[in-house]
Design a protein around this nucleic acid. Structure first.
Lengths: 218, 218
DNA sequence: CTGCATTTTGACCAAGTAGTCAAGTTTTTG
DNA sequence: CAAAAACTTGACTACTTGGTCAAAATGCAG
């Protein structure tokens, strides 16, 4: 008890035990599943606890508030979700860099749709938990890359397009396949699960963004 | 009492009184606001009632279940939301038709963002209330227009692109400005509200979809 | 104006859910 | 191998919230 109090009083997290590490991971994994499907309000702690295979009080031992789980999850996810943008190389070939970025985002949308949905849901509801993150981390990063893209345009290496709208377009399009999965499935049917669907999608998206839909000279 | 029972037993809705018409409208308008912001689970009947300026039991007199309000709203909204797609004219000029469609969607995103968010939220959560609608109404319509676009491609009037992915891309991009409004604002700041922003957006989106981002011969 | 139908609401209930707690069990440590 | 720390949980509380109900107020047709 005395030690525990001391631990909380200290500024550094002291240490995490083996059990803590395992259980926090179990909880966060379960929570990602549930939150991304039902949203914050739509999710109950009991649901997460059951999925994580532990009792509710036990779960609350690790995350005293529902909100804590949610915020932790968002922070973990956002960093990962943003990483590809940071990797755009200002010195690389513009078309090649953007092609890589788009491909990466489509792959992420397919491999981690829950992360995309968690984020989409949060932003859709006004980003109450992460509006700070958006202005403090996302905006500067986007501004930086927008400058790069604008320079590329100036150098004649890209058509004269607005960098911000281009970035939004890439996000919107790639994340659409995760966020609106049900709709995509309702329309394209069983094609969606099939092997090669991701490649076909990437190809289609890249073709439009790179070349547009106007007929081109053969 | 006898009359009321008769009314419910009849197959046709008989009649709606003036008061009914007014109050149902008040409720639906209030509900659109609240549901689109907080989602189904995140919305309480009390919130809607307050916004509609009536007591909760009174609201429940018009819509006996929370779910009823939600479904009514979705049905009303969906038809309107889909209309522009139906208007694509198979006999028109392809580029002109798609340009019109995209412009219309961007305008709708700005003028009715709540409708877009309501729909986005529903689909994001697996479309429990409208999966039927998606397969029975949306899919056929999209299939029909996809056939038209495919024909246009065949006639050399469009670059060889997959019609389904093109449609998804248009949806994703245009609705992004409504659904992810907070994020767009966090990044583009006060530009967003300014007059001309919508036109600038439309111009940027059209430019990329029509011509792509590759530098073009001058 | 009168009586019936429609509309409105305060008070209430039952279910669900976030979070507490005290008492137990397991793990770690000296 | 104790004893302390860390972990676990059944039972519980407080509160929110969807929905009910009976009675009152209002609207309206004849």
């Amino acid at each position: 008890m005395a030690r525990a109090a001391k631990k909380k009083a200290n500024e550094t997290p002291e240490k995490t035990t083996r059990i803590q590490e395992i259980n926090r991971r179990l909880i966060l994994d379960a929570a990602l599943d549930v939150f991304s499907t039902y949203g914050f309000r739509g999710t109950t702690i009991d649901q997460i606890a059951e999925k994580a295979g532990m009792s509710k009080p036990n779960l609350l031992y690790y995350f005293p508030r529902k909100q804590n789980i949610y915020v932790t999850l968002l922070e973990e996810t956002l960093a990962e979700w943003l990483a590809p943008l940071a990797e755009i190389d200002p010195e690389g070939d513009p078309i090649e860099q953007l092609r890589k970025y788009i491909t990466l985002k489509i792959n992420m949308s397919e491999s981690h749709p829950e992360a995309s949905r968690l984020f989409a849901n949060e932003v859709l509801h006004g980003a109450p938990a992460i509006s700070d993150f958006l202005s403090k981390h996302l905006k500067p990063l986007v501004d930086e890359k927008a400058t790069v893209i604008r320079r590329w345009v100036g150098e004649g290496k890209l058509a004269p397009i607005d960098p911000y709208h281009l970035i939004f377009m890439i996000w919107a399009t790639t994340q659409h396949y995760a966020d609106f999965d049900v709709q995509v499935r309702a329309i394209m049917g069983n094609q969606v699960g099939r092997p090669g669907f991701r490649e076909q999608t990437a190809q289609a998206v890249l073709s439009i963004i790179l070349n547009g839909i106007r007929p081109r000279a053969v």
